[in-house]
Amino acid sequence: MDYRDWEILKVLYNQKNLTKAARILFITQPGLTNRLKHMQEELGVKIITRESRGVHFTPQGEYLVHCAEEALAHYQKIKENVRNMSKNVSNEVAGTLKLGVSNFFANYELPYILKLFKMQYPHVEFKVITGWSRDVTQLIHNKDVHISFVRGDYGWRGLLKHLLFEETICIASKEEIDITDLPHLPRIDYRGDYLLKSLIDNWWAENYAQAPFISIEVDQVDTCKEMVINGLGYGILSSRILTGIEDIRLIDLTDQKGNPLLRRTWMYYHQESLEWNVVKAFVHFIENFDWKDN
């Protein structure tokens, strides 16, 4: 068993399909099948069975997949440590930086940040995984990424964090509206992460006895924003997504004491990750980044 074998097992387990796995691994399906046959002969066990719905792993195969994840993670750590040793000698910032990023941050903030960082450190490459904030938090907790950018006050013990910025949650409408009429007005709702949805739902329950009138439901916050801009209803959105948009009326949500409801965006990372020059440089870059001008 070598590195490639472990990689094959991990990809095939995730895909449960030989054709898809072969495409991801950039090998032919017969080549993949032949390699699996050699693995089974070498170990003397059956790793997979082929069924009409795809590939099924035997108990021995499940165990080997677990070993594959550990072996690949260990190999990656060895590569990073060796590279970091040589970088410490030359004081060069280079290598691959693994980032876990919330969907909003990936769309609105990250490209410009990576552009500026790349200009300063041209030998750095990036591996970026995007998703909902709760999933991105899990990535950094599991050490699948070096740094994560998370919207909302998720948190794990043992992680270092840095507050990037705060934004208000607001009612956005093309036309001026009376907040007391909100339950009777058409609302454009969208799929947000759990903490944001809870924040909005709790605010609504504190202020209204009847449920909102949801006229349109969409999957993405950007779609909701465009519908609001075109006067199809109001939306409850984070203020940062509305920056620079004219002719939109905004009303900040407040708690019972009149304080604005805030949504925070954080950078999370592990202390030991700062041993790597590329992580240390990026953390320092973010900590000194001027978010007001971005």
Rank of each mutant, 00 (worst) to 15 (best):
V45R: 09
G152I: 01
I147Q: 04
A21P: 02
H146A: 09
V136C: 05
F165R: 09
E41D: 12
Q29V: 15
F165P: 03
A73G: 11
T137V: 08
K143D: 11
I27A: 04
L36W: 00
S133Y: 07
V93L: 07
C67N: 12
R35F: 05
Q120K: 15
F26E: 13
L163N: 10
Y121N: 12
K161E: 15
S90P: 01
I113H: 07
Y108G: 02
R134K: 03
K115N: 14
I24N: 01
L164C: 10
L114M: 02
F26I: 06
N81V: 11
I48W: 11
G131F: 01
T58W: 01
Y63V: 13
G131Y: 02
N103K: 14
R134E: 05
V45M: 09
Q120V: 10
I129K: 08
H56V: 04
F165H: 08
N142R: 14
P59I: 02
V124N: 03
H141V: 12
N103T: 15
S133Q: 09
T137Q: 11
I47F: 03
R23T: 10
R134G: 00
N81S: 12
R134M: 01
Q76Y: 15
E51T: 13
K118V: 00
Q29R: 15
L110H: 11
I78T: 05
A22R: 06
I48D: 11
L99A: 06
G152W: 01
T130C: 08
T33E: 04
N103E: 14
K37T: 09
T137F: 05
R151K: 14
L43K: 09
S86N: 08
H162Y: 14
K161A: 14
Q60S: 14
G54A: 06
E51M: 10
T58F: 01
N81R: 13
L114Q: 00
K46A: 02
E125A: 10
L64H: 04
S133G: 09
I47W: 01
Q60I: 11
K46P: 00
T19I: 03
A73Y: 08
L163P: 07
A94M: 03
E69S: 07
I27L: 08
K143E: 12
V65E: 00
L114P: 00
H141A: 14
N107F: 04
F126N: 06
R50Y: 02
H56M: 02
H74D: 14
L139A: 03
T33P: 00
G131H: 02
P122N: 05
P111Y: 10
K161D: 15
K46Q: 05
F26S: 13
R35K: 11
H38Y: 15
L160A: 11
T33L: 07
H38T: 15
E125M: 09
R50A: 05
M39H: 06
A22P: 06
I129V: 09
